[in-house]
Amino acid sequence: MTRRMEFHVPQHEKRGFEAAGVDRRDLLRGLVAGAGLTLASGVTLYAVGGVAEARAPGDPVSPEVRWGMLIDVNKCPDGCKACVTACSKENGWAETGSSLTDAQWIRKVEVTDPRTKTSRALPVMCQHCAEPPCVDVCPTGASFKRDDGIVLVDKHTCIGCRYCMMACPYNARSFIHEPLSDQKPHAPRGKGTVESCTLCVHRVDEGRSPACVEACHADGGGAMLFGDLNDPDSEISKRIAEYATQQIRGDLGTDPGVHYQNL
C-alpha cells in the first residue's frame, strides 16, 4: 500500500498502474518519465501503454486484447543473451549443455545470408500465432490459445505425444526429458510434458511485462517491445503501423504475435 502511495496511484485502481485507462495511463506515463530522470536512458516507457483495460484477478482474460511483441533486430547485439538468461531465471529452466534435449524457451538464432555473408542475431521463442498449428494438432486440446492470444500448454491434459512439436514451424517447443523438482511456483513444469514460452503469462496477468522484455531493456539493447496488438494506441501497434515489420515464416499464414523489425 505504501508503494502505491509513493506513486500516487488512486485507491480504486485495481490492477496496478499500467492496467489503467488512457487518462490514467497518461498520468502514469508522466510519473514514470519523471522517475526516469534518475535512470539510464532507454528504460522508461516500455512497461507502459500496452494494456487496453483493467482486469481484476477474478476476471477472465479478454479477447479484446492480443498480446504481442516487436523485436528490433538492429538493437539486438550479437552475443547478447540477456533475454535468454532472464527467461531461464524467471521460469526455472536451464541449459545443461545437451542442446538437443534441453528446454529452450527462447534462443538466439544467427541468420546469415549465404550470398553476402552478412549476419544478424535475433531471439526466437514461441511466436504466439493467431492460427497456431500446435493447437490444431493437439489431440487432447492441451495446447490452446488464451483469449488474449497467448499460446500455452495445459500440462494437466498434456499426454506427452509431441505432435505439437512436429507441427510447430518455429522449433519453439521443448519436451521435458527428465524428472524435475523445485520448479518456480509460478512456472509449473514436469517430466513427460511439452512446454514453451508462456509470454510470462503470470507476469502479464499481474500487469507486468515478460521477463525477457524487462531484461532486454535493463541489460540488453532495448530491442524488445511488449504490448497489445489490438489497441491501435499502444506503442507496439503504432510502431508496427509506422515501420515495416516481419513475422517469421509469415508465408505459412500462422500470423505470429511476435513481429520483427529490421530483419
Binding site: 496496478g16 522517475a35 512497461a47 484477478p57 507486468r208 524487462e214
Partner: peptide
C-alpha cells in the same frame, strides 16, 4: 499482493537502478 505486483516490481526495479 495482487494488484500491486506491477507497482512493487517497478519499485524494486527503480531501487535496483538507483
Amino acid at each position: 499482493g495482487h494488484g500491486d505486483g506491477a507497482v512493487s516490481a517497478l519499485s524494486r526495479y527503480l531501487k535496483g537502478k538507483g
